[in-house]
Design a protein around this nucleic acid. Structure first.
Lengths: 334, 334
DNA sequence: CCCTCTCGGGTAATCGATTACTAGACACTA
DNA sequence: TAGTGTCTAGTAATCGATTACCCGAGAGGG
């Protein structure tokens, strides 16, 4: 492990001062062309690479962004992570990734860790719209923070997500238009921002319709296993249900499992819809009718806002909700 | 954005010197109990948090590990990332995640970026077993590096992966035992370490059998789309093929698409096997017979080796190949 | 009583870069 | 010629923590 060359080494070898080296390399101020020349050449020869830790200390700017997601394994998040990594690289920024394991206590620890590492900003999809508040508020007071996907409304930061209610509305009207008579809903519990919004979206629809069209609702987590169990319960108790609206694709896949097990053909006897349009939505059979989130736009916008806040000091807490797109496939055809 | 408290502030408030504060907090040397007491209390009151950038500069240790994967979106990698994040957190280490986009040039840039950020060590699944070599060798000379999943054999670092050949052998013997007569193979190109090893595994089997049992081979990338196209070609040209061995699950899912389109029932007319046992392997239908990698063990071992190298200086370049497990499901039953 | 040793604490150097401040050299003007 | 301004370069302070080094007080030994 050879020692890296420092500005000092370059200065010595080039016969100028460290200030000149720094200025020649950063272009912060004009240096005489011949000095610039020799500094650049010497740096090249010595294989000089800036020590970003030292730069970070001096400039109080690490060039790294923290990102916290509830669960990397949920297939929805790798899309966001991947996109974030791509966009940040374009800005020469590093991505420090953490998972909160859907636990506010773990999340608080990760937030503290990222704060100690002096990340320049934080992108977070909070694990709970209530329990995440204290830690999130504390960090938001110290550095720019943008919430994405999930939101803690009580904390005053920018948020970038989608219009959940509109997504559910698109699904319900599609199902009704396709002749479905009795709809049930399987969602995540209300601790989850999207879970709550999607359930509310469903209830909004239910309020406009007569009660015979409304099946029960179940709430739990965003997993395939929960979807399976909830769907079994629903379908066994209420044989008239002919459509299940699920709060995400994993739940919908679990519901497909249940339907298969109970011998209910999808979509003939039962329609099932998902939400998110993750890759698996086209792997299951039938493929899922679902709601596609504009992942790239969400991440790009979130990062734009974050970078603006980093560059320009505290900005106002904007809320951006992108429209979503209904994707019709075999599990709930027109 | 209030200023963080520094050791200096704590020292002032506690009425001791910065050295005493540092020693009391780190326990590096004994300090009188009453001093320890007041320092701890004062630090608590002021909400002092160590500035890890400053610590990193002084101690030349950032407490962050770099991780480079070929493509975060490939459902296999989030499992590894998630596991790595979990294990590193237990050691109070941060995870700086990068994607190489399966491109050696991008990969080289990410490596440089991580080196400049002075990560304490690097976990990498190289994108190419040849083109990744120069950048990888350069970084391995400067810091501890462990390769996982994929390997550049020419670079002298530890590697942790699986026994690909044994995995393919398990698959082929299972298929033959189940009465399959003519096997074809769809793999990734030889630039990819696992791609090559899995193809070689298949060829090893082919060498032990008469030529009528061997269908063609196709190589491309590890995607569903490639699997679909390759399987179509194979099946249209050679109607006797009754089993396709795929180099990963995504390819296998593409092959299922092709079989469905051509009206070949799986598994009755055609068996299809995958590799990796990612989550989608149980979403498609029929579910995939595949080879499960011990993801947790791979990551834990890789990190153990890396941490040992960080702590104890350069270690020898060990090669760890975990055994794999055949998972039999509907796409190729017994 | 003086010397040595231990204990614990303070001062200042250090990590590697950036940059405020200072100053020399030169040109131009009055 | 003296004064003023411009252009560059060098010196040293700085970021925040750790730690090498030094020093004073008190204990114990000769």
């Amino acid at each position: 492990m050879g020692q890296r060359a420092t500005v000092k080494d370059v200065a010595l070898a080039a016969g100028v001062s460290v200030a000149t080296v720094s200025r020649a390399l950063s272009g912060a101020r004009v240096v005489r062309p011949e000095h610039r020349e020799i500094v650049l050449r010497t740096a090249e020869q010595l294989g000089y690479r800036p020590h970003s830790i030292a730069q970070a200390l001096r400039q109080s700017r690490t060039g790294a962004i923290g990102m916290i997601v509830p669960r990397i394994n949920n297939p929805f998040f790798p899309q966001l992570v991947s996109e974030a990594e791509r966009v940040l690289q374009q800005h020469d920024l590093g991505l420090l990734l953490c998972s909160s394991d859907e636990d506010p206590a773990t999340e608080a620890k990760r937030i503290t860790m990222l704060a100690e590492r002096q990340v320049d900003g934080l992108l977070i999809s909070p694990s709970s719209q209530y329990a995440s508040a204290p830690a999130l508020a504390a960090v938001a007071a110290r550095m720019p923070v943008v919430q994405f996907d999930q939101c803690v409304p009580s904390v005053d930061t920018a948020f970038v997500g989608i219009d959940d209610a509109a997504g559910i509305a698109a699904v319900t009207s599609h199902l009704v238009a396709a002749g479905r008579r009795r709809l049930a809903f399987i969602g995540a519990d209300d601790d989850n921002w999207s879970g709550l919004r999607r359930r509310e979206g469903f209830e909004t629809w239910a309020a406009t319709t007569d009660s015979s069209a409304l099946g029960r609702m179940e709430t739990g987590d965003f997993s395939r296993d929960f979807g399976y169990r909830a769907a079994r319960r629903l379908l066994q108790r209420d044989e008239q249900i002919d459509a299940i609206v699920c709060a995400n694709d994993l739940i919908a896949i679990g519901a497909l499992d249940a339907a298969a097990e109970l011998g209910l053909p999808v979509p003939d006897r039962l329609a099932i819809t998902g939400f998110d349009d993750v890759n698996v939505a086209t792997v299951c059979s039938p493929a899922l009718t679902t709601v596609r989130q504009p992942v790239a736009a969400i991440v790009e916008t979130a990062i734009d806002i974050l970078l603006a806040a980093i560059a320009g000091g505290p900005a106002e807490a904007t809320v951006t909700q992108f429209p979503v797109e209904l994707i019709v496939r075999g599990s709930a055809p027109a």
